[in-house]
Simulated scan of single mutants.
Amino acid sequence: MSVRHTLNVALGERAYPIWIGPGILDDHARWRAAIRGRHALVVTNATVAPLYLDRTLAALDGLAVASLVLPDGEAYKTLDHCAQVFDALAALKANRDACLVALGGGVIGDLAGFAAATWMRGVDFIQIPTTLLAQVDSSVGGKTGVNLAAGKNLVGAFHQPRAVVIDTGTLATLPPREYRSGLAEVVKYGAIGNAEFFAWLEENAAALAARDDAAVGEAIARSCAHKAGVVARDEREDGERALLNFGHTFGHALETSAGYGTLLHGEAVAIGMVLAARLSAELGRAPAADTQRLERLLAALGLPTALPPGHDAQHLLALMRLDKKNVSGRLRLILWRGIGDAQIVPDVDEGAIGNVLR
Rank of each mutant, 00 (worst) to 15 (best):
S2G: 12
V3Y: 14
R4K: 10
N8Q: 15
V9P: 08
Y16V: 05
G21N: 10
L25P: 12
D26F: 09
R30S: 10
I35T: 08
R36F: 12
G37N: 03
V42Y: 04
V48D: 01
L51F: 07
Y52G: 09
Y52D: 02
D54F: 01
D54H: 12
D54Q: 15
R55Y: 10
R55E: 00
R55D: 09
L57R: 13
A58R: 15
L60N: 07
G62A: 04
A66I: 00
S67F: 00
S67L: 00
L70E: 04
L70P: 00
P71W: 02
G73I: 10
A75W: 04
Y76P: 04
K77N: 01
T78S: 14
T78W: 08
D87E: 15
N95Q: 15
N95T: 11
D97V: 09
A98F: 05
L103N: 07
L111Y: 05
A112S: 14
A112Q: 03
A112F: 12
G113N: 10
G113K: 06
F114H: 11
A115N: 03
T118Q: 10
W119I: 07
D124S: 13
I126G: 02
P129V: 01
A134T: 13
V136D: 07
D137K: 07
D137R: 13
V140N: 10
V140E: 05
K143T: 06
V146P: 09
V146T: 06
F158D: 00
Q160H: 15
V164E: 03
I166G: 12
D167L: 11
L171I: 09
T173Y: 11
L174V: 06
P176R: 12
G182V: 03
L183G: 06
V187Y: 05
K188V: 04
G190P: 10
G193K: 00
A195S: 14
F198Q: 01
F198M: 09
A199H: 13
A199F: 04
L201A: 04
E203N: 14
A207N: 08
A209T: 02
R211W: 02
D213G: 09
A219V: 03
A228N: 01
G229E: 11
V231R: 13
E235R: 05
R236H: 14
R236Q: 14
E240K: 11
L244F: 12
N245F: 12
A258P: 11
A258M: 13
G259T: 05
G261I: 11
H265K: 12
V269D: 04
A270T: 00
G272E: 11
M273K: 03
V274Y: 08
R278T: 08
Q292T: 15
Q292L: 15
R296T: 10
G302T: 06
T305C: 01
T305H: 03
L317E: 07
M320W: 07
D323Q: 11
N326W: 09
R332C: 14
L333C: 00
I334Q: 02
A342S: 12
V348K: 04
E350W: 06
G351F: 07
I353A: 08
V356D: 01
L357E: 05
